[in-house]
Design a protein around this nucleic acid. Structure first.
Lengths: 156, 156
DNA sequence: CTCAATGCAAAGCATTTGCATCCCT
DNA sequence: AGGGATGCAAATGCTTTGCATTGAG
């Protein structure tokens, strides 16, 4: 389950980057937002709203609605991106492109190390008219689920 | 919005493939499921549950809960896959891999024609331990949203 | 000072479930 | 005939909103 990316910046740098982007988009730098950014910059993989709220609340109380509103803004300005994992909406910092393989059956997530996806990012930029990639998702099914499709081992 | 894929099979073939897969997984071939498959095999892009239900209902009444239950089974057996587009969960037939670029800000979807993503699929197979790709999603932001990030033109 | 951002609590909806009935195999 | 699949309708639970208050710039 270790989704650690070798080329990911240190939490401090990521947070600075995020805060700058937030200000640049004309938004205020508040305590609740800092709490949420702290969680996101330290996270290994993607987190659900519930997970973010839970962790962020450790640094001081904040309302669920604030988490939703904040995350919505973050996504709009391209600070985070959402990924559907196992039927759950999850959020992750979009500071550097990365590729993940997600199984549609068991929801297992595997980080892809190779840089081959760089091609795809460039391709999207050309074909999708200046599109800037923040991440790539490969959907499908892992070997285990494909083989035993039908009597999938329930392990949500 | 035309997401037509040049290499996609005809509706009839897609439906046959889907029905076979359904039976192979040990599920019954019922009228409601046929209605839903009909919609999916004729769809250009991805559809929301509401959209699927709306279209499928044209061929005879069926309950929303049935659509949900059916779609859940379809996804489990790898017949369809889900994609989060503009905060909405959407479904699409997973009969052949295809790549899409989705803007996190305006939710615009662009189909990628190139076959460069084939590399990524193969790569996932190797790195993610036998993973079989059904589709690839490039997330990020389109040029328009990246440029005017902040005063995004609301056009849901 | 001003107006965006929050907290609270009430709505709003999408999704899930229990159960009796139906119908594919 | 038997057991999975459906329809209905109630129940969940995630997400959104209105409004008064707070605080960043």
């Amino acid at each position: 389950m270790s989704l650690s990316d070798p080329d990911r910046a240190a939490p401090g740098q990521r947070l600075a980057w995020a805060a700058a982007r937030l200000r640049a988009a004309g938004h205020r730098d508040t305590r609740p937002r800092r709490q949420i950014l702290h969680v996101l910059t330290h996270a290994e993989g993607h987190l659900t709203v519930e997970g973010i709220h839970h962790q962020a609340a450790a640094a001081g109380p904040l309302d669920t609605s604030t988490v939703y509103r904040t995350l919505t803004i973050f996504e709009r300005i391209g600070l985070v991106h959402t990924v559907l994992i196992g039927g759950r909406v999850t959020y992750g910092l979009a500071d550097h492109p990365h590729a993940h393989a997600i199984c549609d059956t068991c929801a297992r997530v595997t980080a892809l190390r190779s840089t081959a996806w760089g091609h795809l990012a460039a391709l999207a930029h050309g074909e999708a008219n200046g599109f800037t990639s923040s991440g790539i998702i490969v959907r499908g099914q892992c070997d285990a689920c494909l083989t035993g499709a039908g009597e999938a081992t329930d392990q949500d």
